[in-house]
């Protein structure tokens, strides 16, 4: 597939070649979608934002501002910006306090429904993290990227990412714990 070669894919995007555009979309859409979904836990939003990212790519390629090499990196980082834009708009409205909206989870729950509840609780805890912490968790655990890959997406060195992921997990644990043991 043409899109395997980023350089050629970009040429195709610039020339608005429908086939190339479709190929790039097919190759990367799921990945971008999963990233946004992980960060926002909202299907409709993830669809909207992910498809918007590809529109932006097209527009960027048109004005010659598209990435020179790493297409995936560009897409994920644009998705990350789009998520932050969304959150920023959302935060303009007051946010519910976490302790009020979180269900009180009893000990040892095993049914599927409870599992989903528990995931919801983790999602809410996750939403309380800084966007950078969210980002590192989304890349490492949502996308399953390696430490090095995560570092390159976040434009950091690996040591910084090690520290960041530690703090992100510690923060997540604390947020969850706040609910569990309340």
């Amino acid at each position: 597939m043409i899109a395997h070669n980023d350089r050629r894919a970009l040429d195709g995007l610039q020339q608005l070649d429908s086939q190339v555009i479709g190929a790039v979309y097919d190759q990367y859409f799921s990945e971008v979608y999963r990233y946004v979904f992980y960060r926002l836990s909202d299907q409709t939003l993830a669809e909207d934002i992910a498809s918007d990212v590809f529109v932006r790519l097209l527009e960027a390629a048109q004005s010659g501002r598209a990435p020179q090499t790493n297409l995936k990196g560009w897409l994920i980082s644009t998705a990350s910006h789009a998520v932050m834009d969304h959150l920023r708009r959302k935060y303009r409205r007051p946010v519910e306090a976490i302790s009020e909206s979180m269900p009180d989870l009893g000990p040892a729950i095993h049914t599927e429904l409870d599992q989903r509840e528990q995931n919801r609780c983790v999602q809410q805890a996750y939403a309380q993290l800084t966007s950078e912490q969210q980002d590192v968790l989304a890349l490492r655990f949502g996308q399953g990227y390696s430490l090095e890959e995560t570092a390159s997406h976040m434009k950091k060195n690996v040591n910084a990412v090690k520290a960041l992921q530690f703090r992100a997990l510690a923060a997540l644990q604390r947020q969850i714990g706040e609910v569990d043991y309340e």
Binding site: R34, S41, S51, V55, L58, N119, V122, G142, Q173
Partner: peptide, 28 residues
């Protein structure tokens, strides 16, 4: 905590969502 973060993985987009996004892109 890392196991919990991993458990949050997102589903694949629905074929319908894929089609919608594709149409939007090609329209643009």
């Amino acid at each position: 905590a890392s196991s919990r973060a991993r458990a949050l993985t997102a589903p694949d987009p629905s074929p319908e969502a894929m089609r919608r996004g594709r149409a939007k892109l090609l329209q643009r």
